[in-house]
């Protein structure tokens, strides 16, 4: 059994796995950064609310909590990096592939891929960035078939083009839906095929 260190799972295990994977991938020649959160996993007693504010006052560095992740230098590397993770590092299962629009002002979208290693029981988050104006990225659906539907969903919600995707149809939205609903600058439609949306 993996050791539990927080009530939401073995975070230290996942963090160590991210460090290990970062070294292995760098050694294999890929350009990437390891992003480690700088707040403690569990806030000291009585500081859950104030910790962030005080940390901000004391230090100009951005503070954040949560998962460690790998940020790839080039989004074009994604299929090759994930294939390396699958074949060499033992991450046999892709549990999620999605995207995040950090804010209206952000010029980039974040792509997020979550992998699991069933032997070491660790999971690994691999991220990459693509510009909003030209959100084109190679699909990983041929490396992990599990990404097939996830990428179709991210494509229709964020307007990302996954090149080489085997089946790039819309998944959840109607075929004639205009706009990308999960982008932060999305404007709600007034009507859809004669049906008022207001």
């Amino acid at each position: 059994m993996a050791a539990r260190d927080t009530a939401w799972g073995p975070m230290e295990l996942n963090r160590a796995a991210a460090q290990e994977a970062a070294e292995a991938l760098r050694a294999a020649g890929w350009e990437l950064e390891l992003q480690l959160p700088n707040l403690p996993l569990i806030a000291p007693e009585g500081e859950a609310k104030d910790l962030v504010r005080r940390a901000k006052e004391e230090d100009a560095e951005p503070v954040w909590r949560g998962d460690a992740f790998l940020l790839l230098g080039k989004a074009q590397d994604l299929p090759a990096v994930l294939e390396h993770c699958r074949d060499e590092l033992g991450y046999a299962l892709l549990y999620d592939a999605t995207a995040v629009d950090p804010s209206v002002d952000s010029a980039e979208l974040k792509l997020i891929y979550g992998l699991r290693n069933l032997q070491t029981k660790a999971r690994l988050i691999v991220q990459a960035r693509v510009p909003k104006t030209e959100a084109v990225v190679p699909s990983v659906a041929l490396v992990y078939p599990a990404a097939d539907w996830h990428e179709r969903e991210a494509a229709e919600m964020y307007g990302i083009t996954y090149t080489g995707h085997p089946d790039p149809r819309k998944l959840l939205l109607p075929d004639d839906w205009a706009g990308f609903p999960l982008r932060k600058d999305y404007e709600y439609p007034e009507e859809y095929n004669g049906i008022s949306c207001t």
Binding site: W8, G9, P37, L39, A43, G46, A48, K49, L51, V52, P62, V63, W64, R65, G66, D67, F69, Y95, D96, T98, V100, P102, I112, G114, R123, I125
Partner: peptide, 29 residues
């Protein structure tokens, strides 16, 4: 310390639990 208005620390985290149907994960930013 958890009231009605919650302001979590900045960051992103994925938390998965075993639902009856499998892995239910929330990736919150």
């Amino acid at each position: 310390e958890v009231g009605a208005v919650i302001r979590p620390a900045p960051g992103e985290s994925y938390v998965a639990i075993e639902n009856p149907r499998g892995e239910l994960g929330h990736y919150c930013v």
